[in-house]
Design a protein around this nucleic acid. Structure first.
Lengths: 200, 200
DNA sequence: AATTTAATTGAACGGTGATCATTTCTGGTG
DNA sequence: CACCAGAAATGATCACCGTTCAATTAAATT
């Protein structure tokens, strides 16, 4: 059809991402198809490749959107939180994963075709998410050195991630666990308490 | 070729599983191909389907083998452990994942085509793995009730899993973490200490 | 030797990600 | 207004995938 001024390149990107997220949420990563996204948007597969370059490019755009929404969700929860900001953070983590299970899983299950790392701009989004958590850990441990805060934050996020992953992968339900978020919160509290005791 | 007495059905299964594991370790789940496994074993794709029924059936057989080897690895480490059995357990967990990264990841990233649960026999292998950990937790908390031990074990395994997953997915290296196993062990120790204090 | 039975095969089907020569439209020029 | 150069959009084409199943072939039975 030639240069359609129907949509700018930015609009096109947004169309594909919106439809891609809809489809990812429905079918999950394993059945996800770039062709099907293009078809439902009403553009050809060739146009989708013009915009994103590859399947990886499309998936990165989708996961980047998920990461941004996740970070926003956490900040919203923290803004509305009372005294117990750690609980707000852990619950916000679980809420987002539970409300967007397929998209959340896709963040971890998509791998670049060449096995290489994701581009800088994508890693920045993951780092931003981590910094939200680090801010709260720093608030809990005012005396701690910055590097110690970061190291502890990484470990705490890994702890929560493990509980959240088991919850979404149904590993927990298979084993009889019913309140994974509570368990994760309890673990985080223990670690923060131990760190406070060490600091004194 | 008709009924080849070259291999019994059991031998055939073993041939496919051995070659499948080799290929999974090389290429990873995303590029893994049942056709390629059949080709390299020297049987047709049809015979592979006679044996395993589907791609899911093959993957379950591969993942079942991985789970069994993992449990064996943990028991071996515990048998050779000194006083610090918890360290042996956590390190054994990480060692196996690090030595078999693609196979370990496939355990979590393979999903049944219909989204349903894995068959009973497969779940039993996962439960066995959990029971290895539960035995050590029970040893640490002799006073604790059985159900409390199981609940704590689930949470501790989730904690270690989170650290291990971040290590293998390179989330940690992206964030500057260098000793994920040490961090996981520290978290486990804190939780066990807190539980002991509660029991008193 | 003839027949039955069951294991093995691989072509065929509909789908995928990826490519790129071709077509089709648009903005600018004379 | 007619023309053209260039960019956007296309979809046939390719190699591969999981899956199916009629046909084939070798072993077991008669």
């Amino acid at each position: 059809m030639g240069r359609r001024s129907d949509h700018t390149r930015i609009e096109l990107e947004e169309l594909f991402v919106a439809e891609g997220r809809r489809q990812l949420a429905e079918t999950g990563l394993a059945r996800f198809s770039a062709r099907e996204v293009a078809k439902r948007v009403g553009y050809s597969i060739g146009t989708l490749y013009n915009v994103f370059g590859s399947y990886d490019g499309l998936m990165l755009a989708l996961n980047a959107r998920t990461l941004a929404l996740w970070a926003q969700h956490l900040r919203d929860r923290l803004a509305a939180a009372g005294d117990d900001r750690i609980r707000a953070l852990v619950c916000g983590y679980f809420e987002f994963a539970r409300d967007n299970p397929k998209a959340w899983i896709a963040i971890y299950e998509h791998h670049m075709a060449d096995g290489g790392p994701a581009p800088e701009s994508y890693q920045a989004l993951a780092a931003d998410l981590m910094s939200v958590a680090a801010g709260e850990v720093a608030r809990e441990l005012p005396e701690a050195a910055a590097e110690a805060v970061l190291a502890l934050t990484r470990s705490l996020v890994a702890t929560v991630h493990g509980h959240c992953a088991f919850a979404l992968y149904r590993t927990f339900s298979m084993l009889g666990e019913t309140a994974p978020a509570d368990a994760a919160l309890a673990r985080v509290r223990e670690t923060l308490e131990a760190a406070k005791t060490r600091d004194r």
